[in-house]
């Protein structure tokens, strides 16, 4: 009896946790097709016209493009650098390894608003030296977001490296492969799930980041989360929900595609 009760409680708590996490996502999708402009339940009818409306709002379209660009570039820079660092951290005999590890994971431990504030002041000072804009430029945003991608990569790739069977690398060396060839032909392919996970998480972290980005955006260079936040401070309406839904669908598609190449269940 007690066992059965426990099992039901267990099932209910799992369902509850997922309901809590997924409910707001679902809610956004649902209200994007409500016909009335002021969101209220129950709906008066359903329409798709908010999607057309959203397309006309340039701030969202531009925000989406900016976010995409920044996230892609930051991932393309952070993942290779982070992978190289993780490899050296796991494999090389180095003094001060723990300190280096802490340094590289540091951006995870510093609250985003604090790091964002520090970067803002740093950019202001640096603009003075180089006599050019850094705040509100793609370069400034990418530099900040690389800070997000490095620790996630170091973390995920280090974990993958720790779980790697070293004897496969030894076998390759035994068969005549030089160290670089061993890395390229054996280590890297075996790390692929970890690297793909690092790429996915880096992209997520960059694409959805708000706290670090808030002070660093500028006119014409606003990321999608900041654009949506600015809009939301006034109201939640179906147009915003439509934008969010498009993003949700894209993200879902991206994940399903990634999953086809690398089983996410095994890497995350």
């Amino acid at each position: 009896m007690a066992v059965r009760g426990a099992r039901m409680l267990f099932g209910a708590s799992v369902a509850g946790a997922y309901a809590l996490v997924l409910a707001p996502v679902l809610a956004v999708v649902v209200i994007s097709v409500f016909s009335q402009e002021i969101v209220s339940f129950p709906p008066e009818g359903f329409t798709l016209r908010w999607y057309a409306n959203a397309w006309d709002k340039r701030e969202f379209a531009r925000g989406f493009v900016t976010s995409m660009q920044v996230a892609l570039v930051a991932t393309a820079i952070g993942v290779p650098l982070g992978t190289a660092a993780a490899y050296a951290l796991t494999r090389a005999r180095l003094p001060g390894k723990a300190a280096l590890n802490t340094l590289l994971l540091g951006p995870l431990a510093v609250p985003g608003v604090v790091a964002g504030t520090a970067l803002y002041l740093f950019y202001v000072r640096a603009e003075f030296w180089v006599d050019d804009d850094i705040k509100g430029t793609t370069l400034g945003l990418v530099a900040a977001h690389v800070l997000l991608t490095i620790p996630w990569t170091v973390r995920l790739v280090s974990a993958a490296l720790a779980g790697l069977d070293r004897s496969a690398e030894e076998a390759a060396a035994n068969l005549g492969a030089r160290p670089l060839t061993v890395f390229r032909r054996v280590t890297l392919p075996m790390l692929r799930p970890g690297v793909v996970a690092a790429g996915l998480f880096s992209f997520i972290q960059s694409f959805e980041n708000l706290e670090l980005t808030l002070l660093l955006v500028g006119p014409g260079r606003i990321t999608l989360p900041v654009a949506m936040l600015n809009y939301l401070e006034f109201r939640v309406d179906p147009t915003l929900a439509a934008v969010a839904t498009v993003q949700i669908v894209l993200v879902g598609a991206l994940m399903l595609i990634t999953d086809r190449f690398v089983s996410l269940a095994r890497v995350v």
Binding site: D165, A168, A171, N174, L175, G176, R192
Partner: peptide
Amino acid sequence: APPHGRDTGMVFQSYALFPHM
């Protein structure tokens, strides 16, 4: 000499097959 310059053929206890090939 490094392992790759020795011309030995080794069979590992875990076999160490390359899982991706």
